[in-house]
Structures are given as C-alpha cells and as structure tokens.
Nucleic acid binder design. Structure first.
Length: 266
DNA sequence: CGGGGCTCCTGTGCGC
DNA sequence: TGCGCACAGGAGCCCC
C-alpha cells in the first residue's frame, strides 16, 4: 500500500544510493511484472544503461536512464524496493556494474514495470489529477465544485487528486474532523479549507517520517517507515479514539475499508 | 462521463 | 489442531 509519502520516501532513499550506477544485468524472476515492452526486450534494453535521475509522479516511481528513456515502477499493494538486495524471493533484480543489486519484491504480483520513451505519454499518467503539493486552495475548491461523490472516495480518486490512498484518506479526514460519507457538496467552505490544509500537513509529515509501515511497506534499507505511530484511525477498528475515547468504526466505501471516529468526524 | 462491482494475486487471520 | 474462506486494496476494465 505505498501511497505518495511511501513512494516519495523510496525515491529519496534511492537517490542516495543508485544515481549514476550502470545496470549490468536484469534478472526477471517473474516476467509478469514487466508490462512493456516484452520481458526479453525490457531486459536487453536496460542492460548497459545508467540511472541518471529518479523522480515521482503520484504513486509512480520514474527512473531517467542514460539513453533518455524511462523505467517506471508502480508498487501497487505489496511492492518493495530493497538496496542492497539479493533476496531469492525478488520478482525482478537489477544488478549494477559494481555487483550490487536492487531487488523488486512483490508478494502479490500486482506491481508493474515499464520501459518507455516518454513516461508522460503513459495512459496511467494522462489520467492523473494534480499533485497535492501543486494545488492552491482556490484550485482545490474549484475541483470540488464539480463533484458529487462522498469525500473519502474522492480523495482516493487518482484522477481527482493523485497520490492519496486508503491510509492517508482516512487519516486526513480524521484530522479535518470530516465524516468519510459526507458528500462533497455538503461541505462548508471552512471544512474544505481545513481538509486542504490537513491533506498537505498529513502527507508532508508522513514523508518526514519515512512513510507508514503497515503490512509490506519498507524503506529501501529494509527498515520500516516511522509514520504508522501517528495514525489516528487506520487499522484501529474497535480501539478508543485518541481524542474522545469512543471506539473507532469501520465502514466499506467503494469496496474499501474506511476507519473513522463517529464522534469526532461530522 | 460517473459510479458500482469485478479482477488481478497471495499471505494472513478468523471461525468452525 | 487444521481446514477453508473472507479479506486486504491500487488501478484497469466492463457495464449500466
């Protein structure tokens, strides 16, 4: 479940360790992970190239290579990038010319790797809404004005705003004191403003703490992120709200579990 | 175009 | 104790 803060953390971690390295060999232990081009072409094209830059768009990790092309990685639910790696359980392993290995681990095989000429032309990227940190409140307000769904589903809608997933949608709404089922149109201007501020605050704090390690997410070093200890509602079904002590509830929205406090969130 | 529901996967944790 | 099954959720897709 890497979301924006986790992918940002991985990007930052990787920048410290693999920029400038030359890819010597690519091991496709599970070729299914490679979505474009064919696994054979993917492997052959990558070998010999250097990693020039690493950046992030939404939950997508993008490596700029020395031939001007781009390696994109989406970790989906259970993807991990570990360096230095070398695990037998990795799905894809990238070995650099110094012998060190970057492992792409992915228990559930939802992850997707691509080698493309222009990452901006990916259909996935074209459908993405803006980055939260690029928005002003007036942008956000204008975006909300057109929407009719509940606020939780909208925060997770990557075509509306990109990078927020199930954990941070819940945490943002708790801090904004807004119930997840609220329709967007029912929110007051003050609530929209609080929501906007809390979105940026929660995401930046999570980045500062290296992301949330629940289930599979780990940093590139293999160590957990530190933000889960700041979670107020996610994965706390039946436990007492830190603010009002009433039990945290869980409902399903759009097929996803939503944790919230009935008393604090209105 | 929007929203609901299914799908891809597999490890975990629950109930019987 | 062990088995079977629901469940976890990011994003694409189909359908109405």
């Amino acid at each position: 479940m890497p979301e924006l803060p986790e992918v940002e953390t991985i990007k930052n971690d990787l920048q410290q360790v693999i920029i400038g390295k030359k890819i010597a060999r690519v091991f496709l232990h599970n070729p299914k992970i490679v979505r474009f081009p064919s696994p054979a072409k993917f492997k052959k094209s990558l070998e010999g190239l250097r990693i020039k830059k690493i950046f992030r768009r939404a939950k997508l990790l993008i490596f700029e290579l020395s031939d001007g092309r781009f390696l994109t990685m989406h970790l989906k639910m259970t993807g991990q990038l570990v360096y230095p790696g070398g695990s037998k359980n990795s799905r894809v392993a990238i070995q650099f010319s110094d012998g060190s290995i970057l492992d792409f681990n992915d228990q559930r095989l939802f992850g997707e790797l691509r080698l493309v000429d222009d990452w901006k032309k990916l259909k996935f990227v074209q459908h993405l809404g803006p980055e939260p940190f690029d928005l002003t409140f007036s942008d956000f307000e204008a975006m909300l004005a057109k929407k009719k769904t509940n606020i939780k589903s909208l925060l997770m809608d990557q075509s509306f705003i990109s990078g927020i997933g199930n954990i941070y949608a819940a945490e943002i709404l708790f801090r904004a004191k807004i119930a997840p089922e609220r329709s967007v149109q029912s929110l007051t201007k003050n609530q929209k403003s609080t929501l906007f501020k809390e979105t940026k605050k929660v995401l930046s704090s999570a980045i500062k703490h290296g992301g949330s390690s629940v289930d599979d997410y780990v940093r590139v070093s293999g160590k957990p992120g530190d933000y889960a200890r700041f979670h107020r509602v996610y994965n706390r079904l039946g436990k007492n709200c830190f603010t009002c002590k009433s039990p945290i509830k869980r409902i399903t929205q759009g097929g996803r579990g939503t944790y919230f406090c009935v008393k604090c969130q209105k």
